[in-house]
Structure formats: structure tokens, C-alpha cells
């Protein structure tokens, strides 16, 4: 079976680097929120993480340090594989509504309630063809890129607040706290589905493997990303 190259080595590296940073930033960041009206991981969590890291100020320093490492890694990736980054952004932001909305509705039904309700509703269970990314992947990738921009911008404002932010601009720091929390929360919600689809769902197993090997079997590409494969081979049949 022919194997199709899907990810460059730098793509694989940045993906796992980003995932590791996200995990570490999430564990430390959620520990920095301590207010009974919020406490997203329970009232005991902030105290526990803080004592693990040697106190709140130490935890804050670690979180900021991780944030800098994360930003630096992404900048480095863009510098090393600029074309890859542009390709990624172009792919995830090209949505063709008719095809993609139907794909999303059908896929969500198939993954949860199955094909029967679709048929009852007068739809076929066949999914519209998808490109390099399907609409679910695009939606999550858009959320993580836009969310990432908000997270980085607000994170920078918060870390600089006691260094350069003048009194007249303190409102920006308050709003940064709120927006940082919002962006992380929404991306995290998407992340639950992402991790399920990527690592647990049996249908997507070759995609998971590709995030290590860089390659997918041709048939997997044809079934899941037909338009991409067609584009690669210049052949609507996709089979050579």
C-alpha cells in the first residue's frame, strides 16, 4: 500500500512540543486562579499546585517561563518551516460552507447517535469529501490558532503589567485576565474532542500514527481527505 506524506518532521515536532507546552501551561495556569467564584478545578487545586511548586509566586514564575518557551518554540517553527505554517493557516481557514457544514452535522451524528437518525431525517450517511483537514479539524485548528493569539497577547500584557503598564492602562490587565481565561477555556473544550478523535477514536488511528511517522496509507487519505489526495495526484479517482 502506498504511503502518502502528511506531516513534515518539523510539523510533528511542533505539534508535540505545542501539546506538551499546553499541558504544562494548563496544569500551572489553572493553579494560578484562586477565587471561590471561579476555581475551575475545585477549591483545593490552587493550594495543592502552589505547594507543589514552592508557593504561588514560584508557580507564577514557572508559568510565565513556560509561556516564553512556548512562544519561542512557535516562532522557531515558523522560521524553520515558513511554507508549512502558511500552508497550515491557508488550509484551516478555507471553509466551503455547503460541503463543510453538512460534513460537520453528519459526522457529529455518526460519532454519537449513529446513522439511523440521519436516514430518518432524510439524509444519507455519506460524508461530503474533505480536503487536507476535515471541518472538525479545521474548527479546532482555527480555535487553537485564534485562541493562541489571544492567550499570548493577554499573557504578555499580564506579565508586563508590573514592569511597563502605566496606571491609565490598568484596565487592560483586568481584561487580559478575563480573556486569557476565556480563550484557554474554549480551546480546552475543543481539545477534549481533539484528543478523543486523534488518540482514541478507532476510525482515525492512521491519523494518530501519522503524527509520529509523518505518513498515512493512501486508502486512509482517500477516505478521509479525498480532495487533498486528488490535488496531490491530479486525478479525481485518486488511485494510480
Amino acid at each position: 500500500m502506498r504511503r502518502i506524506k502528511r506531516h513534515d518532521r518539523s510539523d510533528i515536532l511542533i505539534h508535540w512540543f505545542n501539546a506538551a507546552c499546553w499541558l504544562a501551561l494548563l496544569v500551572t495556569g489553572v493553579g494560578l486562579v484562586a477565587n471561590p467564584q471561579l476555581n475551575p478545578a475545585g477549591d483545593a487545586y490552587p493550594g495543592a499546585v502552589r505547594s507543589l511548586f514552592g508557593g504561588g509566586p514560584a508557580l507564577l514564575a514557572v508559568h510565565i517561563g513556560l509561556g516564553i518557551v512556548w512562544m519561542a518554540g512557535i516562532v522557531l517553527y515558523v522560521a524553520v518551516n515558513f511554507r508549512g505554517a502558511v500552508f497550515f493557516l491557508k488550509e484551516i481557514f478555507s471553509v466551503s460552507p455547503a460541503r463543510d457544514v453538512m460534513w460537520m452535522v453528519k459526522k457529529m451524528a455518526l460519532m454519537t447517535v449513529g446513522a439511523k437518525p440521519l436516514v430518518k431525517a432524510g439524509l444519507t450517511p455519506d460524508l461530503p469529501d474533505q480536503g487536507y483537514y476535515n471541518m472538525g479539524q479545521k474548527a479546532f485548528a482555527q480555535a487553537s490558532v485564534l485562541g493562541g493569539v489571544v492567550i499570548v497577547a493577554t499573557g504578555v500584557v499580564m506579565s508586563l503589567s508590573d514592569m511597563v503598564i502605566p496606571a491609565s492602562m490598568v484596565w487592560m490587565v483586568g481584561w487580559s485576565v478575563t480573556l486569557h481565561y476565556l480563550a484557554v477555556g474554549l480551546v480546552f473544550a475543543g481539545l477534549l474532542v481533539h484528543v478523543y478523535m486523534a488518540a482514541i477514536s478507532r476510525d482515525e488511528r492512521p491519523g494518530f500514527v501519522s503524527m509520529f511517522t509523518g505518513h498515512v496509507p493512501e486508502d486512509y487519505a482517500r477516505h478521509h481527505h479525498k480532495l487533498w489526495l486528488d490535488g496531490l495526484t491530479g486525478d479525481s479517482g485518486g488511485h494510480k
Binding site: G55, P57, D162, G174
Partner: peptide, 8 residues
């Protein structure tokens, strides 16, 4: 050490 100066 923990106050980030958000002003809230």
C-alpha cells in the same frame, strides 16, 4: 509575588 497588578 502573586499580585499581577490587574487592579480589580
Amino acid at each position: 509575588g502573586l499580585c499581577i497588578g490587574c487592579g480589580n
